[in-house]
């Protein structure tokens, strides 16, 4: 059980609170304190950067010694991942763009690693952090809206960047104004386009966040149960969660590819 919250509610709230550092005041925030946009979730940042580094370290190690001879186990694994992502990209994206495939690989592995943090027992890392005097710790970056929206907004920016680059400003504006109902329904087209483009990052970010947040919440609830019941419920949920974490990473990657291929194609 948690070291601060004695009630179940306190325990849950404590588990759902990030380690917040206010950059404007240069101090940690505690309890109910709220900060503005200058607050950074240190736990989210540290874990996502660490997981990103793990991804890069692993794949760069494989890339450095990549041979066309018989591959070793690490190279084999990386090649399977690369091939898998490459197939997905080739299936739905028909243009030539050297960014999309590495982007998709990064999203898939990074998000997968984020989500995998959910399988670590909910109390383990916060308890260890507590020993070192860190009061709050959320270990799963994808249960932080900032992470998932950081990704989805980046994807949206890329979407616009490539739309502009491939179609040119005039063609792109024409597409926004005249699609799908023709030139005479221009305002309606524009409205529809705004809704459409808002829906993309929101659905991307919220889907990942919602799935993983719910998963974590259920792990926390299971952690509140008596110890003999924890395993009975926690084990099947963790097994089921293996599917969820992979699926969510996959969905995020595929939707990114689809959106970007839409940015490259004329309607």
């Amino acid at each position: 059980m948690s070291e601060t919250g004695h009630s179940a509610t306190g325990y849950i709230v404590h588990h759902l609170t990030n380690l917040r550092f206010d950059l404007t005041q240069m101090k940690f925030l505690h309890g109910e304190e709220t900060g503005g946009f200058g607050v950074v979730h240190l736990d989210t940042m540290v874990f996502s950067i660490a997981l990103g580094s793990l991804f890069l370290w692993l794949f760069m190690k494989a890339a450095k010694s990549a041979t066309s001879d018989v591959p070793g186990p690490l190279q084999n694994f990386c090649e399977i991942m690369v091939e898998f992502v490459d197939t997905q990209v080739k299936d739905s994206f028909h243009g030539r763009n050297p960014v999309i495939a590495p982007l998709a690989l990064t999203i898939f592995i990074w998000v997968f690693l984020w989500n995998t943090m959910d399988l670590i027992p909910v109390d383990l890392l916060p308890a260890i952090a507590g020993v070192f005097g860190i009061p709050y710790l959320r270990t799963v970056p994808s249960t932080d809206l900032n992470s998932t929206f950081g990704l989805s907004i980046s994807v949206l920016l890329l979407l616009y960047y490539y739309s502009f680059k491939v179609k040119g400003p005039i063609h792109f504006s024409m597409e926004i104004l005249t699609h799908p109902f023709g030139i005479w329904l221009m305002p309606f087209n524009l409205l529809l386009r705004i809704v459409e483009d808002l829906a993309k990052p929101i659905s991307l970010g919220l889907r990942l966040f919602g799935n993983l947040y719910a998963g974590e919440l259920i792990f926390i609830l299971i952690a509140l149960l008596p110890w003999w019941l924890q395993f009975v419920l926690g084990w099947p949920w963790a097994v089921f969660h293996i599917l969820v974490i992979t699926l969510q990473a996959f969905i995020f990657m595929v939707l990114t590819i689809v959106y970007l291929s839409m940015a490259h194609e004329d309607h």
Binding site: L23, G35, G36, F37, G38, V39, V40, H41, T44, M45, S48, I49, G52, F55, L56, F59, M60, A62, A63, K64, A66, T67, S68, P71, Q75, C78, E79, V82, D86, P98, V99, A101, P102, L103, L105, T106, W110, P141, D144, L145, N146, S147, F149, G150, L151, I153, S154
Partner: peptide, 30 residues
């Protein structure tokens, strides 16, 4: 939402850049 969002976007951008430069080409080449 707070500065974490910006931090994550920068991290993501850097990761993609590194993947594009040092990870993807050698593996796909091999």
């Amino acid at each position: 939402f707070n500065a974490t969002l910006i931090g994550q976007m920068i991290t993501f951008g850097l990761l993609v850049l590194f993947t594009m430069k040092y990870v993807w080409p050698p593996i796909i080449q091999a």
